[in-house]
Amino acid sequence: MIRLVLIMMACLLLTAASPVKSGYDIGDEVADFRLKNVTGKMVGLSDYKDSKGAIVIFDCNTCPYSKAYNERIIALNKKYAPKGFPVIAIQPNDPAQSPGDSFEEMIKLAERKKYEFPYLMDETQQVVRAFGATNTPHVFVLKNNGGKFTVAYIGTIDDSARDASGARKKYVEDAVEALLASKEVPTVRTKAVGCSIKLKNS
């Protein structure tokens, strides 16, 4: 009887200690991925092994928040790619549910906006599931520790979706600046209103 109780307690402890994992947390190591860019070329995290880090952004064509932040995303890459933190944009929506986010439409947007960073199609949605991104645009600032990328910031770009000039907190810039100065990232996680990512079978 005592043994049974002990086993039950052990089971309880185990379940309590292993919560369902939904995506990366701060400090987690990011697994390499390889996705098709709008140029037709495959791009992966390992291509960035010589950079200081990366600004991974789950983004799409259709979401009004993605549209509102589009210029700010382009500006982030302009400012931080030369400093070693380039933008890698990933489109995770299922085009069957969101036809405006098809690969063809992604190519058009990248050409129209003259993207100088990759805009990758996550066709199998394995990457968005691994990261645990929920809405667009959803940012993961990664730090490169000798080829191992770890998560340093998760969340929104700034605190003012409606206009860039109204932003009082620029969370992503603050995170990257802190990493460049080898300081602690001031805010590591933020939440924002946004379009939910359209996953298959959901």
Partner: peptide, 9 residues
């Protein structure tokens, strides 16, 4: 409300 990070939680 502005700044959802302050009120979503």
């Amino acid at each position: 409300e502005r700044n959802p990070n302050m009120w979503i939680n």
